[in-house]
Write a protein that binds this DNA or RNA. Structure first.
Lengths: 140, 140, 140, 140
DNA sequence: GTGGTCTAGACCACA
DNA sequence: GTGGTCTAGACCACG
């Protein structure tokens, strides 16, 4: 589970968390029954107040996306149908368009833009691998 | 120029306006020097308070995208200043990271993601060329 | 008639005009039946839009302080009783206290503060004499 | 510290708060480092919206009079920076001119005006000495 | 509990 | 008609 918070977007942080978990759940990146990161470590990782994560999880629970078992953690509920491919492309297109517009706006040329994308994909891949590695450590 | 507000997204309305006007400027739908819709009529059209639009325009002005002449209206600037290169990369990185994380959550594979990016860049380019073509028509 | 507008006070300009004319009328500095400066020259002198002065005069008329005879000008109405001396001191004290507090805030010492007061009294005296002189010119 | 708002004066409420806190600071009623009343209780006491007080405090912070620590409160600064001498004279001149014009409108003669100024300065000095005395009592 | 932000309505200054 | 400001209510992030 990798979450990305944009502190300057003006969008409430707890909603950014909610949206990303909803998307991950709807597309199958998160599996039904899977456990979500617990509040305190997640808050620390994202450099955010614990209340904020708690609010996001509480929102997700009231939306029926997750289930909280007190003392055991939060788990993804079962009732999710994976989104169809076109829907997923549509959701992704929104984010891509924003990046392209921003690039044009900042007068970043096409080749430089694409290079930056590859650079970031590699960087985030490394981060994800480290992250999963730590999780394995925790489980062992 | 047509703006579309999503009242349920949780994203501040004024930021939705800012983003969409940036898109309009980047795509050529708005041309340098052109007058933007006046605050009051635009607010009515979008069913939003005047101040919300005023805040969006004020934000755009502080970003250097538009210029506002009190009593006359708001106008798209000719060429807003380029920031220092590192700052531009930093700002762009935020958007790119969001798109990559979204792709990961949607389980869109790397090659498909890159293909979608090229597709959207081409689409935006075509749109911009169309607008430039119209501009020539107007001048002739 | 000398009016003093503070553009940075945040107090509506038209209300500053109203208040000062009310005070001048109530204390007898303006005599019943006396003509007030007409809108256009006054607006020019104060570097203010004509609408703003018109609004002040209209407010004064609806308060019953002045009377507008279309085409002839605005005149002070008759029904004013001069304020008692203690009331006048009280009204003046408000302004004086503000100046003293500002002086303390700006760390201007007592002697310098008093010197500045004498300087400004002389300056405004000169201005008033010039002003009256012009009025005599106009009448002659 | 007791604040008094005049809702009918037309002067913005937040500026009335700003001025009165400046007075409290100048008169010693508020001491450097001391905490100001929190926004919400003060707003309730004055029967005013929270934002109005927040705006006053934000103005005071940008003037360098107070310091605000989010989540902790607002505090009177130790010694706010002195502006350049000409700027200070300019700011003070505005207040002095208002007092002089008011005196003129109220037909208060020059000698009486000056006497009133000395009277008010002495009054403020006495008040400040009283507060300093109380401060010593607190420390002892 | 603290301060900060977004949306909204009413009013102001100006062309 | 234009944009700008002040007040207010509801919500957010944080300690």
């Amino acid at each position: 589970m990798i979450l990305q918070i944009n502190f300057k977007s003006g969008m409430p942080i707890y909603l950014q968390v909610v949206d990303q978990i909803k998307v991950a759940a709807a597309s199958g990146a998160l599996r039904p029954g899977e456990v979500l990161p617990s509040i305190r470590p997640l808050a620390e990782e994202l450099r955010v107040n614990r209340n904020t994560i708690a609010k996001a999880y509480s929102e997700l629970e009231s939306l029926g996306v997750i289930e909280t078992l007190p003392g055991r953690g939060c788990f993804l509920k079962e009732n999710h149908t994976a989104l169809r491919k076109e829907v997923r492309r549509k959701l992704l297109t929104v984010e891509i368009d924003q990046a392209i517009v921003q690039a044009h706006h900042l007068q970043v040329r096409r080749d430089e833009f694409l290079a930056l994308i590859h650079e970031r994909m590699d960087a985030l891949d490394r981060k994800r691998r480290t992250h999963e590695h730590h999780q394995e450590d925790d489980q062992s």
